[in-house]
Design a protein around this nucleic acid. Structure first.
Lengths: 290, 290
DNA sequence: AGCACAATCTAATTTTTATTACATTTTTAT
DNA sequence: ATAAAAATGTAATAAAAATTAGATTGTGCT
């Protein structure tokens, strides 16, 4: 396929050059775009009241070698469209916006909602369970951009529990840690595209030793998900847009909050009030941030 | 599939009763819903790294007699959804306060909106200007919990420009850097409560030397804001009294995005060089995620 | 009217896809 | 540790789909 125009646009341009029956197909396609194109040739032909070959000729005029290629293209298009209706994977659109921050926040909000809507509950609960279990030892591992998130999660976990280690530095040094791991260890991996081979290797080795692998990734799912016990996927942006890790951080934050709520159970309410009061009264205290 | 629940919901409900490999399929399906389900069994199986029959077993558990029936149902659902573009994910999905994750996300979303609503535009633009100015040198500094955010911003800035340094380790070692700073330096500080005296001292010393201090903080404003040239405040009071840094990350992300869109032309060359170098440095050893 | 040409369909063929039966592996419980 | 049960994959098979070839219909032109 030549350019970046949508198939629908392409079809509209081509429309006047089409034969009468081909137009019938075109109309059906545009009227129920893109769903109609995802049906079989026979179904589409029936809808348009034409024969299969006619459909095929139209597809071929659109520049596709096969109906399959056409459908693949449609699906790709659809995927992008469903991901971010606000911003059409076009950074320039944000630029012209009078209020960059507002539209940016709106977009992230949307991504966050998508993230939450797509996340299976058992996955989330499973992660919280595993991280909350005292008997387990926790190991954290992040990629270049996600290591800060691993560090962030590490800090918070350390508040709640013992046996939390953030793996840093060169991969080779992790081997020592790895050999000692067993079924009471939990390896938390952050891996977003482009995915990191090293993470997969380590995850595979860990999984072989019955280590529970938890994965934080993007909606395209790192290959690590194949060996992971639980996977939390965040929607991080459209394919050609600028990625954001904020939805991923939402997940991290939510896990932390869930852990806190669970662990502190009854006293959390009281703690809340105390916290709120302290904030309202203002504070003269010092020390590092928390 | 007798009832009116969406297939995605159905799948989420069923999730915990699924076998491990079936869950893999479920994850892929939910992460790329509904497009993944419109592919062939073989394609879907490949994505999820399982066999065809496993996909089929899942579909059957969902109550479909055949894969074709499943796809038809998906398409019908999609058609309805596309007709009313405003209702993107059925609201029912987002309702139900019983669900921790959903209500948590809702709270954070609100905090983000508050954050954006309260943030003066000139502050935001000022930060972007300063960070985008090539002549300036950038120094980053974070607190215990916010250092990951500093690291995150640092990574992204390095993609866009030179002269970016993340100050790590013990405060005393920063003195060397500090004495060299002048009016062409920008010191980015992350400080949320409880505020850190060290940050204030450094900020004061820097300000005296005409260094531009940029502050990322919470809505109660770190004392650093008194000497800061620009302050970006995020609303961070999370549910259950536990703070969340997600809105802060939103700001960081927004700044990065603004920088990227603003000077896209200039960046792209640099980006290519960086990419090329990274590739040359070998893919086996380096952490590749991005 | 009748020829040429385009448009379209029918039906056969090929290719792909879904489905089934069964073997193998993994897990669980004793 | 061992057997039973569950889960999963392999490979053969059946079904359905896409694609092609050629026949048929319709249209415009002299």
């Amino acid at each position: 396929m030549s350019n970046s125009r949508s198939i629908a646009e392409e079809l509209r341009v081509l429309f006047e050059t089409l034969t009468p029956t081909e137009r019938k197909v075109g109309r059906v396609l545009l009227a129920n775009y893109p769903v109609a194109g995802l049906e079989t040739i026979a179904q589409l032909a029936l809808r348009a009241d034409v024969s299969g070959p006619t459909v095929l000729r139209l597809i071929s005029k659109l520049g596709f070698d096969s109906y399959t290629a056409f459908q693949t293209s449609l699906r790709d298009e659809l995927e992008i469209r469903l991901q971010s209706p606000l911003v059409r994977h076009d950074p320039a659109q944000l630029q012209g916006d009078s209020d960059f921050l507002v539209s940016y926040a709106a977009r992230i909000t949307q991504l966050m909602q998508e993230t939450v809507a797509h996340l299976p509950r058992v996955e989330f609960d499973g992660v919280v369970d595993l991280l909350g279990e005292r008997k387990n030892r926790i190991w954290l591992l992040g990629g270049r951009l996600t290591d800060p998130l691993a560090a962030y999660l590490c800090h918070h976990l350390k508040v709640v529990r013992a046996d939390v280690v953030h793996l840093r530095g060169v991969p080779s040094s992790w081997a020592d840690s790895l050999v000692d791991m067993g079924k009471h260890d939990v390896l938390v991996i952050f891996d977003i595209r482009r995915y990191w081979d090293g993470a997969l290797h380590i995850a595979e080795m860990a999984a072989q030793r019955k280590v529970s692998v938890l994965l934080f990734t993007d909606q395209w799912l790192s290959p690590v998900s194949r060996v992971a016990r639980f996977t939390l996927a965040a929607h991080t942006a459209g394919p050609s847009g600028w990625d954001t890790n904020t939805p991923l951080m939402l997940l991290v934050d939510a896990v932390i909050a869930a852990l806190n709520t669970r662990q502190w159970g009854a006293i959390s309410d009281r703690l809340q009030e105390v916290e709120a009061m302290r904030a309202r009264l203002g504070e003269g205290s010092s020390r590092a941030d928390e």
